[in-house]
């Protein structure tokens, strides 16, 4: 489903690449963890694969199509439909309710959000166990609940791949475990999941683990 070849990304001012000639292949329906220490390049790799940034060289293919050289419009479309990204800091809009945050991907134009989309958003909140919190603002939700809303939002447009960047990083271990369990359930339903984590236990609960160090993939388990 996703294939990367010789990806290189070097940030300006850095003396060595954040991602250094990485090759990668992700199958459809796979739950892949990328583990490594801080600064190993795993988040940069995730951002390249999720079309948030472009690499300096190399290619990343999604269903055979190079997303690195695709136009901004195509990359926007990928982020809006096929890809979903979940971050460590939840990143919800504080002035929108939980339901409205889930519906955010549908608010890109003047066309009003339809009843069908609202029902789908409610179903997603139900799926992550927050149907009773749809009117709550992020400030009224716990960290775990906010992350669940963020996951629901990520899946609102029927994404095929979920990129999770340290989704448990700011949660306690019990809450983090429940989030990982949710990701496993979504994966079991057919969603492809790529997760960056430095938590060994959570990494082992995925189907495959890639170890990164100094911008390179050093091991696969």
């Amino acid at each position: 489903m996703i294939m990367a070849r010789a990806l290189v990304k070097c940030y300006s001012g850095a003396d060595k690449p954040a991602v250094d000639h990485v090759d990668l292949r992700v199958k459809q329906g796979e739950f892949l963890s990328i583990a490594g220490r801080s600064g190993s390049g795993k988040t940069t790799l995730l951002h390249i694969l999720s079309s948030l940034i472009r690499p300096d060289s190399g290619e990343a293919l999604f269903l055979g199509r190079d997303i690195c050289t695709a136009s901004e419009k195509v990359r926007n479309s990928l982020r809006g439909k096929d890809f979903a990204v979940v971050f460590q800091q939840h990143h919800l809009l504080p002035y929108l309710s939980a339901l409205e945050n889930v519906l955010l991907p549908f608010m890109t134009g003047l066309a009003p959000v339809g009843e069908k989309q609202e029902n789908a958003a409610r179903a997603l909140l139900r799926r992550v166990g927050l149907e009773h919190k749809e009117r709550s603002r992020p400030g009224e939700l716990s960290g775990g609940e906010q992350q669940r809303v963020a996951i629901a939002r990520a899946l609102a447009r029927g994404a095929r791949v979920l990129f999770a960047d340290e989704p448990t990083g700011s949660l306690d271990s019990a809450t983090g475990a429940s989030v990982i369990q949710l990701l496993r359930e979504l994966n079991a339903d057919g969603l492809t999941v790529l997760m960056v984590t430095h938590n060994e236990e959570f990494a082992r609960r995925s189907g495959r683990v890639l170890r990164m160090a100094d911008g390179r993939i050093t091991r696969q388990e």
Partner: peptide, 16 residues
């Protein structure tokens, strides 16, 4: 900037 980043990450174009 964070809000803008969220919007862009969920598919908002630059124009949006």
């Amino acid at each position: 900037r964070r809000e803008i980043g969220i919007m862009r990450a969920v598919g908002f174009s630059r124009a949006a």
